[in-house]
Design a protein around this nucleic acid. Structure first.
Length: 316
DNA sequence: GAGGCGTGGCC
DNA sequence: TGGCCAAGCCT
């Protein structure tokens, strides 16, 4: 007798799932929430080894976040990227007064929690019977139902079609594990896949969905000027959306004078920064704040600005 | 709906 | 080594 795809998936998960992930072995909704936000567009290894535990130690409860300054949250987020997540997490903590809603509908009203994340938290923390639709599930669905077209609305319908409503926790976790370890983007391992019997795309999995149009990342050439007064250096806290809340040195399209310290290249999500770094003792009228190297380590800086700090240390 | 939004790892 | 990819959301 043939197994249903849901039963096959469940059996696969029991044997092959990543059961030891800390956000799977807890029933603390706040811990699960933090993990879901950190894991957005971010590899499990990075979250697991560098960010998840230190963050929860610094902020043991959601109320601790609500009662802290955004700068303190950003400091724990430093290096993780997509800093709007930290801003939204801080805002969400205050929106709900440190008390996380216990259902997907109310979770979705919080900043930074979309439909998929709301479903994930609700399914994992409260066993609410809802499917998720993340990149892993999307890839599986495109192949399983042989869908060439990328269509978010239709994918949600297919997500419900394959969903095992009797086992929301195990199903959703299993789908992410299959996506992460079997239904791989470049090398799908169809022979060990729990869906190998019923998958409609198994003969040519790489053709689903249609390939994205290739676009070349633009290169932005900039000068970074490190203004120095005695043993202090000029930084500003970014107000714009890009790297919001992080501190940085002065950046310009002008070619300045001063001592050349070196060059940095930084790849961002939508452009590449190529910058020449200069040290200058000129007076400046811009509204900077001035910090020693020691004090700078207390701030939150982007990767690129950390590279600048390294140049300063070498030149000193 | 398309584009903005970080960083590290992989080949 | 440059281009893709990794538990999306917001505007």
């Amino acid at each position: 007798m043939e197994l249903t795809p849901q039963t096959s998936l469940l059996q696969w998960y029991n044997k092959n799932g990543r059961h030891d992930l800390p956000w799977r072995t807890t029933d603390n909704p706040y811990h699960i929430y933090v993990s879901e936000i950190m894991l957005q567009q971010t590899q499990v290894k990075t979250v697991l080894e560098r960010f998840y535990f230190p963050f929860l130690e610094r902020f043991p409860t959601l109320l601790d976040i609500a009662e802290s300054d955004l700068d303190d949250v950003l400091k724990m987020w430093e290096g993780l990227g997509y800093y709007t997540r930290a801003k939204n997490l801080h805002h969400a903590a205050r929106q709900c007064n440190g008390i996380l809603p216990d259902n997907a509908h109310d979770l979705m009203n919080l900043s930074g929690i979309g439909r998929s994340t709301a479903h994930a938290i609700a399914a994992f923390a409260y066993r609410e019977s809802l499917p998720i639709l993340d990149a892993n599930v999307k890839r599986i669905l495109h192949r399983y139902f042989a869908l060439k077209e990328r269509n978010e609305k239709k994918l949600w319908e297919y997500a419900y079609a394959l969903f095992d409503s009797s086992h929301p926790f195990e199903y959703n976790q299993a789908m992410m594990d299959v996506g992460a370890t079997v239904c791989l983007a470049k090398k799908p391992l169809c022979e060990v896949c729990p869906f190998k019997e019923s998958c409609q795309g198994k003969t040519d999995p790489l053709t689903y969905p249609d390939a994205k149009a290739k676009t070349r990342k633009p290169i932005r050439k900039r000068s970074i000027i490190v203004y120095q007064r005695h043993s202090r250096y000029a930084l500003m806290q970014r107000k714009e959306r890009f790297l919001h809340g992080l501190w940085g040195f002065y950046e310009t399209t002008e070619i300045p004078g001063g001592t050349a310290l070196g060059n940095i290249t930084q790849h961002y999500s939508h452009f590449t920064l190529e910058a020449n770094v200069y040290l200058s003792h000129e007076d400046v009228e811009e509204e900077f704040e001035w910090f020693t190297i020691e004090e700078i380590t207390q701030l939150s800086l982007s990767r690129a600005d950390h590279k600048v700090v390294e140049f300063i240390k070498k030149s000193a």
